[in-house]
Each structure stands twice: as structure tokens, then as C-alpha cells.
Amino acid sequence: MSIFAATPPATASGALARLMRSDGRRISSLGSLLLMAPFFLLMGFVFVWPIVNLLAISVLEPQPTFDNYGRVLSNPVYALVLMRTLWIAVLVTGLTLLFSYPVAYAMTRAKGPTLVLITACVLLPFWSSVLVRTAAWAVLLQRNGLVNQGLQWFGLTSEPVRLLYTQGAVVVAMTHVLMPFMILPIYGALRNISPDYMRAAAVLGASRSRAFREVMLPLSLPGVLSGSILVFLTALGFFVTPALLGSPQEMMIATLVSQQIRETLDWPFAAALVGVLTLFVSLIAVIFSKAVRFDRLMGGRE
């Protein structure tokens, strides 16, 4: 009795009210839960559960060991695939950054029709199919394609060079495909820098290039980091471009996974490959989770 007496009835109904009802500014806990339930069910069953299941297979089959992972890391053929994937991802990230920063910078400086032109050039590929763009590169780089024609016209080579189905083709096409993911975050970061900073730097005696180096560049680094991480992570697991433009002798991890599943039917080993990729990517994402605003990747609009 004394316990109940110590709790005034108003408090009990208050607790109930807080659980069941909205107090105006905030939806009730129960309401929130109901609204979020479909989201959590979907992501739980169609995203988390299958991944966990796949990772489980990688360590449980054929026997519960880490042998599959041992094979990935110790077999020189597979280790080479991992290293190649890493190298291509780094290369693609570097190239996209090199190409994207000036474009993003030009976007912040441009006005009127020029801005519309640049934005259209950046966005059109972003909204057009990855397959269309990959097909375009297949056409450009084929034996009698425009690039080979150009090389011959300039006299750089007397007969067509093999361009398609090489690592070079993969790097160039992936750079092309992933550039919007670099430009948009950098543009977002640059656009949020008030022009007053540059004016202040100028008034304080900095030349334009100096002001850029000392003020603009450091302030835009978060955007550069977001873009780089995003491009790097996407490049690591990229499938379409390496599968269509790459050489079967020089596979990347995604094409190797596909081969293991579709041709060798070695599920546990493919699962281990996916496991290596997923764990590596998650690790990077966790390390940079504070610095990277993933929700800005669609153009950094606030």
C-alpha cells in the first residue's frame, strides 16, 4: 500500500499519457514506433538479415572455420584481385577529385547562363543511366572507335590499339561515371562558404591565390572528404563498368564475386569475398562517419 500511496495517481496517468499521447510538439512514443515500424521491418528483413545471413555462410560453410577468408587472403590470385581493386579505387578517386574540384569551383563562381550550362553538364550524366554511359565508353574505345580513329589521325599509332577490355578503360569509364558524386559534395561545401571570407582575406592582404589556399581550400575540405570517401567506397564495389569494359584476366572484386556465384557456384567463398569487401567498407565508413555528411551527396543542398 505504501508504495502505491507514494505514487500519486496523477503521475501514473501522466506516464500513461506520455506513452500513449502526443504532447503537441512531439509524437507519442507509441505513435513514433508505429510510424517507424514499416521502415525498420523493411530494412531489417530485406537489408540487414540477408547480409548477416550471407556473412554467416562465409564462416559456417562448408565447416565453421575462417578457411574461406584464409583462401581470399592467402591465394596470390585473389590477393592480387584485392590489391587491384584497391588500386583502381584509389586511382579513380584521385582522378575524379582532380577533375571535379575545378568544376565545382567554377560552378560557385559562375552566374546566369554559364551556371546553367555547367550544372546541366554535371547533372545530365548524373541522371542518365550508368549503362548508357558505359555503353558510350564501349563505343568510344572499340577497335574502330573514335579514340582509335583520333590516335591514328594524329599519327600516334599506325594501327588500332586495344583499348576496350583493359584496366585503362575501366578507370576512365569509372571516373566518368562517378564524377557527379565528387562534384556535388564539393560544390555543396564551396557554396556554403560566404564570399565575405574571401573579401576579408583580400582586405587583410592576401592575393587571390593565397586567399584560396588559406581560406577557401581548408573550408571546402569537408566536401572533398565526403566526395572522396563516397567515390572510393562506390568504386571498391563497382560491378557494371568492370564487368562490361574490363578484362576477364584482370578482375575486380565485384566481378570475381559474380564469377564465383554464376560460374563456379562456390557460395561460401563468394560470401567470404563479400565479407571482406563489406567489412573493409564498413570500417572506412565508421572511421569517417563523423566527417562525412552522406545526406549531402545529392548536391549538398540544405
Binding site: 503521475t11 501522466g14 499519457a17 506520455r18 499521447r21 504532447d23 503537441g24 510538439r25
Partner: peptide, 27 residues
């Protein structure tokens, strides 16, 4: 004010408007 309006539910105490207890009545 928010407690009178019904946008906050108090931890303790009561609010009566025109003699009617509205402490936990929705806004």
C-alpha cells in the same frame, strides 16, 4: 504556458480550467 496549452504534460501537479481537470487532456 505549454502545460496549460497541453503541449507539455507535467511531471506532477494539476491544471484545472473552468473547474475541469485538463492536466493530461490533449491540446
Amino acid at each position: 504556458l505549454m502545460s496549460i496549452a497541453g503541449f507539455e504534460f507535467p511531471t506532477e501537479g494539476s491544471i484545472r480550467i473552468g473547474g475541469e481537470d485538463v492536466t493530461y487532456t490533449p491540446a
